[in-house]
Simulated scan of single mutants.
Amino acid sequence: MGLTGSHIVGAGLWMLGALVSFIAMAVGGRELAADLPVIQYMFIRSLIGLIIVALVCWRSGVGQLRLRYPGIHFCRNLFHFGAQYGWFFAVSVIPLAEVFAIEFTTPIWTAMIATFALGERLTRTRITTILLGFTGILIILRPGLEAIDPVAFIVLAAAVGFSTTHVFTKKLSRDQSSLNILFYMVGMQAVFGLVPALMVWQTPPLASWPWLITIGIAAFTAHYCIAQAMKLADATVVAPMDFMRLPLVALVGFLLYNEQVDLALFLGAGLILTGNLMNIRKEHRRTA
């Protein structure tokens, strides 16, 4: 892709939208946890997302919603549903920056799972990425030096779930549009969450609705903004912008919740992000 200054600025603006969306979801999840069960606001979020995606598809053509791979969609969304539950639970319990730092291991798990599920080669660069990722996690969790919060392992499990989702997405994206994947994501997850949400249903207080609408919209805009950024610039340009999520969410956590972040978290996250960047640059050179 021939990059110009306007392309980079445009990609940067779209990624800013994605960063704001991710942080809005985290803050929304934290605020809603005081009034509603996680499964209930996940269900409402899926309904809001379904309305948004359905309206977009109605304008752009409903023909793209043809369901061709129901089994892959089902497995993808089951893993994503479980990962999202773990992520929303975690943001209500531990510091936001810690959640985002551990979540950055998702590309590492994706590389490992893709090796077995898609037959992708485990190159030297990918092995280095995996080792740096595990080292970063050890620095963040510091086993043996202090008590590890069990919720950190829930975030790790969520990262594995997200990575499995990415592998299924790669299979679907070969001949399915992004809107097709998003439509069945929110649709199936609304079905998954219906009965569990009804079992613990509480009438949402009026103050919760702005946050419910926020996480419903942000879930769509985060994916849409990243897709638009990728159209304007290569992954090697876009991905480093995404890593700005960590310092931004650390600042938000400090300002809103007085959350303190230590040097070990940034050091561990730095190793994880370094490994991810190495892998992205290597893949870019290989495909170029």
Rank of each mutant, 00 (worst) to 15 (best):
L3K: 05
L3G: 01
G5E: 10
S6W: 10
H7V: 02
I8H: 07
L13F: 07
L19G: 00
V20R: 01
F22I: 12
I23Y: 06
I23V: 05
M25W: 02
M25V: 06
A26V: 01
A26L: 03
A26R: 00
V27H: 05
R30M: 00
R30I: 00
R30V: 02
V38W: 00
I39Y: 03
S46R: 15
L47C: 15
L47V: 15
I48H: 08
I48N: 13
G49D: 03
I51P: 15
I52C: 10
V53C: 09
L55W: 12
C57R: 08
C57A: 15
L65G: 07
L65D: 08
R66P: 14
Y69T: 12
H73P: 13
F79L: 14
G82M: 10
F89V: 15
A90Y: 04
V91K: 06
V91C: 08
S92K: 08
S92T: 03
P95C: 00
P95I: 04
E98M: 11
V99R: 03
I102R: 04
E103Y: 11
E103Q: 10
T105C: 05
T106Y: 01
P107L: 02
P107Y: 01
A111H: 03
M112C: 13
A114T: 01
T115Y: 12
T115P: 04
L118G: 06
G119M: 06
E120V: 06
T125L: 07
T125G: 07
L132G: 09
T135R: 06
G136E: 05
I137R: 07
I139C: 10
P143R: 09
E146I: 09
D149W: 11
D149Q: 15
V155P: 08
L156T: 05
L156M: 12
G161D: 01
G161H: 03
S163D: 04
S163P: 05
T164M: 12
T165S: 07
H166Y: 13
F168W: 08
F168H: 11
S173C: 03
S173N: 07
Q176M: 09
L179G: 04
N180F: 02
L182M: 15
L182E: 07
Y184R: 03
Y184E: 04
G187P: 08
M188V: 02
Q189Y: 02
L194F: 14
L194M: 11
V195N: 07
M199F: 11
P204R: 03
A207D: 14
W209A: 11
W209M: 08
L212P: 07
L212N: 09
A219G: 12
A219I: 11
A219P: 09
A222N: 13
Y224M: 13
Q228L: 15
A229G: 12
M230Q: 11
A233G: 08
V237A: 09
V238P: 00
V238Q: 01
P240L: 04
M241C: 01
F243P: 00
F243M: 02
L246Q: 01
L246Y: 01
L248C: 05
A250C: 02
L251W: 05
V252Q: 00
F254S: 01
F254H: 02
L255Y: 04
Y257D: 00
N258D: 13
N258T: 13
N258H: 14
Q260T: 14
V261M: 05
D262A: 10
L263C: 09
L265D: 06
A269V: 06
A269T: 07
L271M: 14
I272S: 11
G275K: 08
L277Q: 14
